[in-house]
Simulated scan of single mutants.
Amino acid sequence: MRRRAALVTAVLLAATTASCSSDDPESAPDDTVTASPQSSPASSAPTSPTPTAEPTEESPSADTTPPKVVGTIATDLAAPWGIGFLPDGDAVVTERDTRRVLLLRAPSYDVRQVGTISAAVPLGDQGGEAGLLGVAVSPDFERDHLLYFYVSTASDNRIVKARLDDDRLGPTTVILDGIPNGFIHDGGRLAFGPDGYLYASTGETGQPELAQDKGTLAGKVLRMTTDGEPAPGNPFPGSQIWTYGHRNVQGLAFDDADRLWASEFGQDTYDELNLIEKGRDYGWPMVEGRGDTDGGRLTNPQVVWATDDNSPSGLAYLDGHLWMASLRGERLWRVDVHGDRAVHPVDYFVGEYGRMRTVVVTPEGRLWVTTSNRDGRGDPRSGDDRILLIDP
């Protein structure tokens, strides 16, 4: 009963912060690319703390070859959320609401259940966002057989680890708990960095003030050891916090220069693609999109989208491009990366497969993209949810 009461309170608190449509979104500011739907050129415009300027055309991408869906890896899944590839090419998939951990054996990718994370509290059937979320494969998996999971419990969000042996998932061990949770904005993406440390995204649970509070792990990107301790070199002593001022980061991806990128839900005007840099403040809730206040103290997004066109989730990097799955926008975005700049967003498959949740790069250099039409907010189609194989 106490948990349900807390959830009702969270819903009421989130009523003014949940992402909603904007019939007349403001134009984007200088040095921030604005993505236009239906494969239109990207845009940017002059600086303004409250973006109001007209956009100007961005240089087009040199790569105009559209991606193609070349197959379906799996069907009849239920809100698949996280995907991680094992060294032998097998894939581990989490389902948010069933709490199932699935193993897809290469090359046939037959789906088999290897375990359930019993501590997870799924809320998707009520329209919530908590449950069994991200998964990351240990960089030393061939030796330790460890998987890491982001889990919503009745009291918090936490990160746990478990061994996968002989197609069976062992008991979980908590490495980090006490991450605030809510009915919405639970973050949940996990990724090991090139430095060997584990990165995690969290949401501000519908309470915007938590994003700026460095005394809480909500609304942050975290960096930790495999035991959940603050990683050496973190900007705030004794803390796992790497960056702060986030609303709800749903995607993390490292590029080939070891830079970290993140996709983030906006509120009414802008969803964001951010370049994540140590110790930086990304502005929520003071600004949505760009905000050159306090002498540049806030870090501006690289690309912004109207919330109707995106609601970004999973993020992956391949051959000079970031690939972003879009929930409300029901499309896959490709964004060019030139050095430390992200430019020229182009969208594909608009409305063809419904909500898209997660995108990952396969060992062969293709993409897997999951649909999320059975997450309580979509319109399920025959065979949903599925994993699509895309040749980029």
Rank of each mutant, 00 (worst) to 15 (best):
G187C: 14
L147Y: 08
P171H: 07
A130G: 14
V174A: 12
G193K: 05
L198I: 07
G134P: 01
L147H: 10
G187I: 15
P171I: 08
I184F: 15
G128K: 01
R158I: 15
G170P: 04
D165F: 07
T172H: 08
P194E: 10
D140E: 07
P180Q: 14
L169K: 11
D166G: 02
D144W: 02
L176H: 15
R168T: 15
V160Y: 09
V151P: 05
R163H: 08
F149R: 00
L147D: 08
A162W: 11
T153N: 05
S201R: 11
F192Y: 13
L133S: 06
G178S: 14
S201I: 12
R189P: 08
Y148V: 09
I159R: 04
G193A: 03
L133V: 07
E129Y: 01
G127V: 00
T173I: 12
D144P: 05
R158C: 14
T173K: 12
R143F: 05
T172E: 15
L146N: 01
G131M: 02
E129A: 00
T153D: 07
R168Q: 15
L169M: 13
D140R: 03
T153P: 02
R168F: 11
I179A: 08
P139A: 11
D156A: 12
L132H: 01
G182Y: 13
G134V: 03
G188E: 06
G188R: 03
R158N: 08
G188V: 05
R158T: 14
A162E: 09
I179N: 12
L146S: 01
Y150T: 02
F141D: 06
D177I: 10
D140M: 00
N157T: 08
S201H: 08
K161Y: 10
G193Q: 05
T172V: 15
D195L: 10
L146P: 00
G131K: 03
D165Q: 12
D186P: 06
D165H: 10
G188S: 04
G178Q: 14
L198T: 04
I179H: 11
G187T: 15
D144S: 06
S138R: 02
V160H: 11
G182C: 13
L164K: 08
D166T: 10
I159K: 01
R163D: 07
V137S: 04
A191C: 02
